[in-house]
Design a binder for these strands. Structure first.
Lengths: 279, 279
DNA sequence: TATTCGCCATTTGTTCAACATATACTTTTG
DNA sequence: CAAAAGTATATGTTGAACAAATGGCGAATA
């Protein structure tokens, strides 16, 4: 007779719910309420990997173990693992296991990956610094382009985000307020990328998310003048509205200057910015 | 009794091999030799979608149909469809079908997607033009950055690609030669992106593939002077070697100028290039 | 007549079972 | 001692059945 090794009975499901919460997992769905919305293994593993509990070269638990831990069948586990493979995060070696790939091989431009990065923030600081360096490179130019091409509709999006930025600025104490502020910050920059009316730039806006999120988190500690930051954002917005590309370039640089410092990156290291006499 | 609706016998498998080849599919593996390397449904659908046979809003065949056509089981089909979902190309609607998403929603920065784009080329020309516009925006700056940061090892990669570019330049008649030339062209530009030593830029190098591929295809018709193009590439390489950022910027612009014209994009439209007095 | 409710067909989502294949380690045998 | 054979363990593939979601059709109803 073949003894079951994967499928789990309802009893064991409850058992694992408890077991996992002791290990500090992300919230496992209250399985009794809505059994359809199953806990995503991809989500769990992404969190674990981004947090560094599994590092490049490590092997994540094998399929059958994940089946047990999450009281789920193998097909579902494999489906979720597939997502990590498509994201370039893990590599499946037949007959051996699933290995975490090197950071450089991750598809960090994939929206799903950037979402994980912002959600489970502070992945390895190295990638964060790379992304911020990239932002320092391109954002001034993106703002400049937006100043040339932005339509009225684009301005609406930018302005709405800016308004939200101002409203959620005051009481940065509560967590919810901070989250909203972060959202608006992201929305503001994304709206500018979209205003370039180029599909590549627009998609690149996704990679801002993690670094902006990290920045908002850090700015709580360093606590630079929020009023000043808001004013700098306003400068960017106004320059775009007035169709003044050069001013937009400078204003965007100013916005990033402070944030770069907070992360220990000097603005002068910008690869695109140097070598030019600014207009 | 439950009648089988998905799984197919070996007989039906042969049947579909023939049927599909009549429709001009990509080569279906000679199923008798190596049954392990199964025909990828993802590959087939990607080709069909990129070729425009399924357009945004259309529904691709349902799972069971794909099972039949490719003589494969449903799990495999679902696994492959998952890949297209992760690429943002299709959207699965429970109980309805799998719909092709709008071009703007595709994850065109995903390496897998860019590979499909270059392989099955000529997706919608719109995206191609967007990508080239993006290249016009950033490549000069990337070359400039590379000129500052390139190591000796980076130069080796750049030079090797350049050598291959020269060797496969002469007889552009045969398809294999053209393919090699295209490969080297990609390798050359990718090496420069890598030389920036920024993970984001390095990954962005993937999006070169489709536009370079298209360019090589078109250059067969327009037939601009290949010697001249090679010389321009050499200029970029030398500028990077000599650590002359400004020259690298200009040389890269020159390389792209001709290619832009071939695609009906004026270099002056570059969003990053304008507004500055070049050094 | 128009509208809403509920049934039904279709299609994707989940689960379970069994076997095939690839890889690493171990044991056997020359 | 080394090469070959075998074994343990993991992922890969296949097949079957059921569950859930969606859309459309039709009947009951205001």
């Amino acid at each position: 007779m073949w003894t079951r090794r994967c499928g789990c009975r309802q009893t064991s499901r409850v058992r694992y719910d408890i077991q996992e919460s002791q290990q500090g997992l992300i919230a496992v769905t209250s399985s009794l309420r809505k059994p359809s919305a199953r806990a995503s293994i991809a989500e769990y593993l992404a969190e674990a990997i981004f947090a560094g509990r599994y590092q490049p070269g490590d092997f994540v638990p094998r399929e059958l173990d994940l089946c047990e831990r999450f009281a789920i069948n193998r097909s579902a586990v494999r489906s979720d693992l597939r997502q990590l493979v498509d994201a370039g995060i893990i590599e499946r070696i037949s007959g051996h296991g699933s290995k975490v790939r090197e950071y450089a091989e991750w598809h960090i431009l994939d929206p799903q990956v950037t979402e994980w990065m912002s959600r489970y923030a502070a992945p390895n600081p190295e990638i964060q610094r790379e992304i911020l360096a990239f932002r320092l490179d391109v954002e001034p130019y993106v703002a400049m382009t937006a100043a040339r091409r932005a339509t009225a509709r684009d301005l609406v999006a930018i302005e709405e985000a800016f308004e939200g930025l101002g409203q959620n600025l005051r009481n940065a104490s509560c967590a919810e307020e901070r989250r909203l502020h972060s959202e608006c910050d992201v929305a503001f920059h994304v709206a500018i990328f979209k205003a370039t009316h180029n599909i590549v730039w627009a998609q690149l806006s996704h990679i801002l998310r993690p670094s902006i999120h990290l920045l908002v988190t850090m700015s709580n500690e360093h606590a630079s003048d929020p009023e000043e930051s808001l004013e700098r954002h306003r400068q960017v917005m106004e320059s775009i509205r007035m169709r003044r590309p050069k001013e937009a370039f400078l204003a965007a640089q100013a916005v990033l200057a402070g944030t770069a410092e907070a992360l220990g990156l000097e603005p002068g290291a910008s690869s695109l910015g140097r070598g030019f006499e600014l207009p």
